[in-house]
C-alpha cells in the first residue's frame, strides 16, 4: 500500500503545483503547458483508482487533441499580459466567493460517497474497466448516451456552419477539375520556323 500512497502524494503535489501555475504564470503558452501537465497527472491519479479507461481517454482527448489545438491558437496570439491583469484585485473578492461556493457545493455532493475509502470494492486483477464501462453505456444508459452524442454532433455542425461563408476572392482549387485537366488545356504547341541568330553588329560605331 505504501508505494501507491507515495505515488498518489507525488502526483497530487504536481497536480496542485501545475494547477496554481496555470493561473499565475505570465506567459500564456506556459500556462497552457502547465494545464497539459495537470491533465497528465490527473490521469495518473485516475490510473491509481483503477479507472484506466477514463485515464487514457483523458490523455487521448484532452492532452492529445483539445490542448494541441488550444496551444495552436495561444502560440499565435499576441496577448498583452499587463492589460489582462489590470482588474485582478478588483475582481478577487467576487471570484473568491464563487470559488468557495463551488468548493462547498462539490464537497456536499461528493463527500458522502467518497470520503470513506474503506467502502471501496477490491476488484480482481483481470477486471476490465473498459469492457464494464462499454456494457453499461450501451445497455442501461443507451438513450442518454446517444442523446449526448447527437447534441455534440449538432454543436459541431453548428460551429462549422457559423464559420462557413463563400468568399468572392477565394483562390481554393477544385481537385476533381485539376485531375481532369488534359495536356491540350494547358499547353499549345506552335509551329514556327527556326530562328537564326544574326551575327553581332560590328562594334566600330560605338567607339566613335
Amino acid at each position: 500500500m505504501l508505494f501507491t500512497d507515495i505515488v498518489f502524494y507525488v502526483l497530487s503535489a504536481i497536480l496542485l503545483f501545475s494547477g496554481i501555475r496555470v493561473i499565475t504564470t505570465r506567459n500564456p503558452v506556459h500556462a497552457a503547458l502547465f494545464l497539459v501537465l495537470a491533465f497528465f497527472t490527473a490521469a495518473g491519479i485516475w490510473l491509481l483508482l483503477e479507472a484506466e479507461f477514463l485515464a487514457i481517454a483523458l490523455i487521448l482527448v484532452y492532452v492529445g487533441a483539445v490542448m494541441v489545438l488550444f496551444l495552436f491558437v495561444v502560440m499565435m496570439l499576441d496577448i498583452n499580459l499587463d492589460k489582462l491583469r489590470e482588474g485582478f484585485w478588483e475582481y478577487l473578492p467576487m471570484a473568491g466567493l464563487i470559488g468557495i461556493l463551488m468548493v462547498v457545493e462539490m464537497t456536499m455532493v461528493l463527500a458522502e460517497k467518497n470520503l470513506h475509502p474503506s467502502e471501496a470494492v477490491e476488484l480482481p486483477a483481470n477486471y476490465s474497466n473498459t469492457a464494464a464501462l462499454g456494457k453499461v453505456l450501451y445497455t442501461d444508459y443507451l438513450l442518454p448516451f446517444e442523446l449526448a452524442a447527437v447534441v455534440l454532433l449538432v454543436a459541431m455542425i453548428a460551429a462549422i456552419v457559423l464559420t462557413l461563408r463563400e468568399r468572392k476572392d477565394n483562390k481554393s482549387m477544385n481537385p476533381a477539375e485539376q485531375v481532369k485537366v488534359k495536356r491540350n488545356d494547358r499547353l499549345r504547341i506552335v509551329s514556327m520556323p527556326a530562328e537564326v541568330e544574326e551575327a553581332p553588329a560590328a562594334p566600330t560605331e560605338e567607339k566613335k
Partner: peptide, 23 residues
Amino acid sequence: DAGLLYILAMTSVAVYGVIIAGW
C-alpha cells in the same frame, strides 16, 4: 487490457515534442 487505447494516447502525446521545439 486497454493496450490499443494506451498506444493511441502515447502517439497523440508525441506531437508536443514538435510543437514545443518549434515554439
